[in-house]
């Protein structure tokens, strides 16, 4: 590290002293990024409209753009104009181990910040607020969770919804047959093919998936929200320097009002791949979060 320290011109050196820290003092993820010249951003394949693949297999979405805003900020703060952004596909089940084991540096998708996960990873300030509900066929007769007794239901492995559903099943002896699919795309396929009466996951994900269904009008999101899910970007634990850069980048989006444009682009306008509009206006919870960003876990909201 000391080598690159010497190579830095004095002006840049002085600048970097007042921004994050000099290269010699870099620790954790920032040090890794500086040394490897690259930041690895995680993305999902069907967490629509947060982080998913377009027709050219390129990651896109609301959270994906937030992740890129972070990468931009990192490149500025580390004075690395040629910072390489690498992408890495993750699933709900692999995202935490891959953050922990150093494969990816930052995961902005649809990951709920909760106490349990905070034992393993850290989260940025929140980027979205939602709740777990049901997606079902309008004709299915399912109105709320109580109607799921003895039914086949699907959820995505590794999500908070999966735990919630399994615990609910055991506690209330609902005798549901729960299937945990590998990702949201597969869960939705189970629902569409009639394998499951309902798909349980965050309502906004359900609304996103409806945009890729053959006939969006045959689906309904229903049921009382079972939880508060506040999404955050996930990063390695105990890495305050990197966390500060991530938080600052997101807070900047909030302060500058850029978030409103970003939100409108993904939730109020037609989105790829089919060009359908989710028409999902900003909730008052999210407005509150943007006004007062916090990285508190879902349980304390």
């Amino acid at each position: 590290m000391s080598k690159s320290f010497k190579l830095l011109p004095a002006a840049v050196l002085a600048f970097s002293m007042i921004s994050v820290s000099s290269a010699a003092e870099l620790t954790g993820t920032l040090k890794k990024i500086k040394e490897t010249g690259a930041i690895v951003l995680a993305h999902r394949d069907a967490a629509i409209p947060f982080s998913y693949l377009d027709n050219d297999q390129k990651p896109i979405g609301y959270s994906w753009e937030i992740a890129n805003a972070v990468a931009e900020r990192v490149s500025k703060e580390l004075n690395m104009p040629s910072l390489v952004v690498r992408t890495n596909l993750v699933t709900a089940q692999t995202r935490i181990p891959l953050i922990q084991n150093g494969t990816v540096d930052l995961e902005c998708g649809s990951t709920t910040n909760n106490v349990e996960r905070q034992r393993q990873v850290d989260f940025s300030v929140g980027i979205f607020v939602t709740g777990t509900r049901l997606l079902t066929k309008k004709t299915s007769g399912v109105k709320d969770f109580a109607d799921l007794k003895s039914k086949n239901v699907v959820t995505t492995a590794g999500t908070t919804a999966e735990r919630l559903l399994k615990a609910m099943n055991a506690d209330k002896q609902m005798d549901m047959n729960i299937i945990s699919a590998k990702d949201h795309g597969e869960s939705f396929q189970m629902l569409q093919s009639g394998r499951a009466s309902a798909f349980i996951v965050d309502d906004v994900i359900e609304a996103g998936l409806m945009t890729i269904s053959k006939n969006p009008s045959e689906w309904a999101i229903t049921g009382k929200p079972q939880s508060v899910e506040n999404y955050g970007c996930m990063l390695r634990k105990d890495d305050p320097a990197f966390k500060k850069v991530v938080d600052d980048a997101i807070k900047d989006l909030y302060k500058s009002g850029a978030i409103n444009k970003l939100y409108a682009k993904w939730f109020l306008h037609p989105i790829p791949p089919k060009g359908l509009n989710m028409n999902f206006p900003m909730s008052k919870e999210l407005k509150a979060l943007i006004a007062k960003p916090t990285d508190k876990p879902a349980e304390s909201l």
Partner: peptide
């Protein structure tokens, strides 16, 4: 690897 080298060692998929 991370434990051996002390740094996050991204291997990649």
């Amino acid at each position: 690897l991370q434990w051996l080298t002390g740094n996050p060692s991204p291997v990649g998929p």
